[in-house]
């Protein structure tokens, strides 16, 4: 009894209540949020495909599907209100509910970024410019990195997995580096005769992708908050990663 058992990353944090329905309500909320995240992930993939393939049909599909994420966000809010009223969560349950509420907001914003890319695709697709190869490859790499981080955030949320969250943090320097390289490439291309409108469009898309990666990082912070009860926002990433890896995550 004297041993402080601390937090249990391997067990399901939503389970174990004497009132089983409480478990079900928390699990249902998490499933709803994950469903939302999967939609956003698909939207992100579709938006990047539309961008790289200059595919206006794909871009329209992204815009058509965007309201689904908003509806899921409304459903999640309703579940959260109901859960707070019925259960008045405390401790880890309170952290779960608060974090899932914020994660839903992160997903919703990440979904907006996918829609923004689709909008940009539709704006410049009528122009005569074409996507030149070095820029295309750079965009693809940035897209892979950002969406990879985002998909990892889904796995982190599914099990409130600190290790997955740390993996997202470890990807951040690469995300920044790839975004920087793309910006330099676009600057160079603009000097070599690329139309400013085209360069700005691609710059917006690159920014949107980088933000999707940043949303994944914010979600990773919230997952750690749930799992170990510490708010790790604004903490030095390198020290944080080293400390938590050292603790066995």
């Amino acid at each position: 009894m004297n041993e402080q058992e601390g937090k249990h990353p391997s067990t399901d944090l939503t389970a174990g209540h004497t009132v089983r329905r409480y478990d079900q309500e928390l699990a249902r909320l998490r499933t709803l949020i994950l469903q939302m995240g999967e939609h956003v992930s698909e939207q992100g993939r579709a938006a990047v495909a539309a961008l790289l393939n200059e595919d206006d049909c794909q871009a329209y599909r992204v815009l058509d599907r965007e309201p689904q994420i908003d509806y899921l966000s409304l459903d999640a809010d309703e579940e959260i209100f109901r859960l707070i009223v019925r259960r008045q969560p405390t401790a880890v349950d309170l952290r779960i509910v608060l974090a899932l509420s914020k994660i839903a907001a992160e997903y919703e914003r990440a979904g907006d970024k996918a829609a923004r890319i689709a909008h940009q695709v539709l704006e410049w697709i009528e122009e005569t410019d074409v996507l030149v190869e070095p820029v295309r490859a750079s965009l693809q790499a940035l897209g892979e990195r950002a969406l990879g981080m985002f998909e990892r955030s889904l796995r982190a949320v599914a099990a409130f997995d600190v290790s997955q969250s740390l993996g997202i943090f470890e990807d951040e320097p690469d995300l920044d580096q790839e975004a920087r390289e793309l910006r330099e490439l676009l600057n160079g291309s603009a000097q070599e005769g690329l139309s400013p409108r085209y360069a700005i469009t691609l710059f917006y898309c690159a920014q949107a992708l980088k933000h999707i990666g940043r949303h994944a990082s914010n979600i990773a912070e919230l997952v750690i908050y749930v799992a170990i009860g510490q708010d790790v926002r604004y903490r030095n990433r390198e020290i944080l990663i080293e400390t938590l890896r050292h603790r066995g995550y």
Partner: peptide, 19 residues
């Protein structure tokens, strides 16, 4: 205590996880 208890028994009690 109510947001981040340090002992698992405390957490189990205040979150209603006692069988």
């Amino acid at each position: 205590i109510f947001t981040n208890p340090q002992h698992k028994l405390t957490e189990d009690y205040i979150t209603g996880r006692f069988g």
